[in-house]
Design a protein around this nucleic acid. Sequence first.
DNA 1: ATGGGCAATACTCATTCTGAGCATAAGACG
DNA 2: CGTCTTATGCTCAGAATGAGTATTGCCCAT
Lengths: 322, 322
Amino acid sequence: MAAKKAGGTAVGGPDTGAQRAVEVNLIAVLVAVTGGEPRLMTLDGGKALPSGPFELEHRSLQSGLRDWVEQQTHHPLGYVEQLYTFADRDRAEGVALGRVISISYLGLTREDAARPSGDSWRSWYDYFPWEDWRSGRPPVVDAVILPALNAFANLAATEAVAAQRRQRIALAFGLAGNEWNEELTLQRYELLFEAGLVAEAVRGGGEGGAVLPGREMIADHRRILATGIARLRAKIKYRPVVFELMPPAFTLLQLQRCVEALGGRLVHKQNFRRLVEQQELVEETGETAAELPGRPAKLFRFRPAVELERSIAGTKLPLIRT
Amino acid sequence: MAAKKAGGTAVGGPDTGAQRAVEVNLIAVLVAVTGGEPRLMTLDGGKALPSGPFELEHRSLQSGLRDWVEQQTHHPLGYVEQLYTFADRDRAEGVALGRVISISYLGLTREDAARPSGDSWRSWYDYFPWEDWRSGRPPVVDAVILPALNAFANLAATEAVAAQRRQRIALAFGLAGNEWNEELTLQRYELLFEAGLVAEAVRGGGEGGAVLPGREMIADHRRILATGIARLRAKIKYRPVVFELMPPAFTLLQLQRCVEALGGRLVHKQNFRRLVEQQELVEETGETAAELPGRPAKLFRFRPAVELERSIAGTKLPLIRT
DNA sequence: ATGGGCAATACTCATTCTGAGCATAAGACG
DNA sequence: CGTCTTATGCTCAGAATGAGTATTGCCCAT
């Protein structure tokens, strides 16, 4: 390795020939919401996310990702944002001293009815049944998860560690005065992973304890999915990203169902409308839709300007007015 | 180097000779706040951020980063979070067909008076003078930036592009009914870059137009810094990260000055206190500090529990109470 | 054509948050 | 003892929220 002087000289000096078998992988969490369910593009019978190596032909990371996803799923990629980058020593099985860098992305689209993508779209709650609170607290939480997590906490070597685990459990699952926070998807998955309650954790020959319901994925794809869900759940609250998931015209109820699907919880209808309208995110198209029983609903579209405007709203500090 | 098939199965192929010299670089935006100024750890006379290649010995990306930063700056790294990963084709000057993946991190510490780190700590406003609104709207905005950006907008090939540019300018710099939004540091930098108003943009033999005040950096380090500033400015509003920047005990005014330094704007004192206190982020130590003229201020410390509790607060949807 | 069923919309109301100030308290200093 | 300076307290109006109640339209079955 070239002895590299701090920062100054050209980043990446001469390669001295040390075998630097770094491989860069691109992975996509591609989400759509159809029929009130948040869906995920999967491959390999639902066991994998679309992914592929970053190659020299690719103009950029994003375009590399687009190439792979479109090639593997025949589905165009709309809005894309980077999620996280991580490195693992041993993910590639055959390669000796390799290193894999995985760069993950979140993509949002509309599921295209015209384009048959096989059975590759699946509800993300297939993978995380405990994340769907739309019909109330999922039974699996009390029946299986919490008892198992408590056992995990009690198994800790020291009481300090046990207490810390209980804290984490209480926060992640809304116990002891804490509320359920839908944004903690990743923390919950990691807790369950550490406790050996998901298949991925016991794969490498662990204790093989009781494993929760919820589909398994290869490598750490399920963790990446959890990262994507958490990011999206946080983001819909301050950026109008739902846009990307909705058809050009929609009723407010459809919009609400979409938000509920993503968040995994129900929202107050009247207040939701008030919120949407006062933020001026949408405007009436003039049409109405009457597919459901009941009074027909007005159709809305997103205000074109919004994409730029609102999107950059930012939150608040107690500023001084000058 | 192995050619890898999509989706995880590693297929060891012969090295075809295609030079896949992927190099992975770790870069740190290391921030501290001292004397009411947000400071940045730099190297190479302030032209570079601490960085170094990710190597096989490193246990993880983060530990690799820590190694480099501690080696280059002799300063320990506290809180760390990943910022962004990007790839460039041509960053390495000498290497033929190389690719550089840069993974950037934001780190927060306290500047250690005991440990002399040379002149390596610099105010981040040295690099972005237009980002500091604490003493009012910086003169450079009206005197230089806006005229130059307007010229840039007018130079657009089509009126559509020109209009779009004006929109971006108005949003980024708080014109036409928009407020100044301190979180848009990156967007502003990119706008200025595109307009050829920062040194980095004209380096490769551009028009060499008038360049703004503000220190230059190598490669895209300044862009990375802008990313870090934007992230931190956004984050202090919903996560108690200021913690990492404050000494163990502090007055509320000191805390306020720290937040103001980061945000680049002044906050309303009484309301700031109310906010901090009602969130129960801090508790009194019992001591008071009387270094300034005026009534001595109570000293506070962060509530130990906060790190876990509040930190995972999450924002709100109009939820239904069940 | 009439009355129910079902959503969509419209309003209300109490509470909590926020933005802005005014007022008072406590040391330090001449 | 006034005065300067910063720390703290307290007030108040307006905006934002959480939870409901009331009305309005359409379709359908009687």
